[in-house]
Design a protein around this nucleic acid. Structure first.
Length: 271
DNA sequence: CACGGATCCTGATGGC
DNA sequence: TGCCATCAGGATCCGT
């Protein structure tokens, strides 16, 4: 479900409501991808100072340490003003003085990990290899160009890996490459500078637009207040196999790359 | 070391 | 209706 736009929309939907809240209790369901990494008593009594985002991670800053929350494939965070019963796939709940934060994650590829500090090994194990933030000033064309020159893998997979630029998942990778007119199978190192420039702009544009639209609703995305997004209404290629390209009318094609589906227009996107 | 494949897990969907 | 195969927004680990 969640790529950068969904995570950012989620963050915005509860950051202000949880800021300043004191943690009163913690409840865990089935195991997630990684163990929490601390005793529950470490969390209880602490205030949540704020919520940041790094790539697809939500970072909940506490008075002593932080919680790294990842939504995996099927996770979503909801912040309830009133405490109710935990749902079937609610596997992590923070009961605070201002409401209850729950991570609901049927497939349990997500995780909540405590780290004493952002520079600690616990945090760096997850954040240490992440690429640059695509919507920040550090996403510079020259650097992007240089980084892609080093990589011989198909550009789609380089985007997905998140070591060059973070936040681009399976939907937005296909969308950005369509916007840039680049075939997903093209080796990253083979892209000319002008084409990298198009991709650089496309990645920013697609993600920014998706954030503005409130995230994708391809299946069931909704933010922490239960509101759904509208990006899927305008997907150019993702999920549109066989349907006419919105630019040239030829059928959108789908292939598999690294166990993931890729969608592209064989006419508009050049190798 | 960079790449490609297998893998964790549950639920939805479609064919027979 | 049941049963089976396939697919799903992620990212790590492992063999080559």
């Amino acid at each position: 479900m969640p790529e950068l736009p969904e995570v950012e929309v989620t963050r915005r939907s509860f950051a202000e409501r949880i800021a300043g809240a004191r943690i009163e209790a913690v409840e865990m369901g089935k195991p997630l991808r990684w163990p929490l990494g601390c005793e529950l008593v470490t969390l209880v009594g602490q205030r949540v100072l704020g919520v940041r985002r790094r790539g697809k991670y939500l970072l909940l800053d506490l008075e002593r340490g932080l919680l790294l929350v990842h939504l995996g494939m099927s996770g979503s965070v909801t912040f309830y003003a009133e405490p109710g019963p935990a749902g079937k796939h609610d596997h992590f709940s923070l009961y605070t003085t201002q409401g209850v934060l729950r991570l609901n994650d049927p497939r349990r590829f997500g995780a909540v990990v405590f780290a004493p500090d952002e520079r600690s090994p616990q945090a760096q194990k997850l954040l240490g290899r992440l690429g640059v933030e695509p919507l920040g000033d550090a996403f510079v064309l020259d650097d992007f160009c240089q980084a892609l020159k080093q990589r011989s893998a198909p550009i789609k997979q380089v985007l997905l890996a998140g070591e060059t630029v973070v936040g681009v998942g399976n939907i937005y990778a296909s969308e950005a490459l369509f916007l840039a007119g680049i075939r997903p199978t093209t080796r990253a190192s083979k892209l000319s500078r002008p084409r990298v420039a198009r991709l650089h702009a496309a990645v920013r544009q697609v993600l920014l637009r998706a954030v503005e639209k409130g995230g994708s609703t391809l299946r069931d995305f909704s933010n922490a207040q239960g509101e759904s997004g509208h990006f899927q209404l305008e997907a150019a290629v993702y999920g549109r196999a066989g349907q006419p390209c919105r630019l040239c009318g030829s059928p959108v094609r789908t292939i598999r790359q690294g166990q993931r589906s890729t969608f592209f227009c064989p006419v508009c996107q050049k190798p």
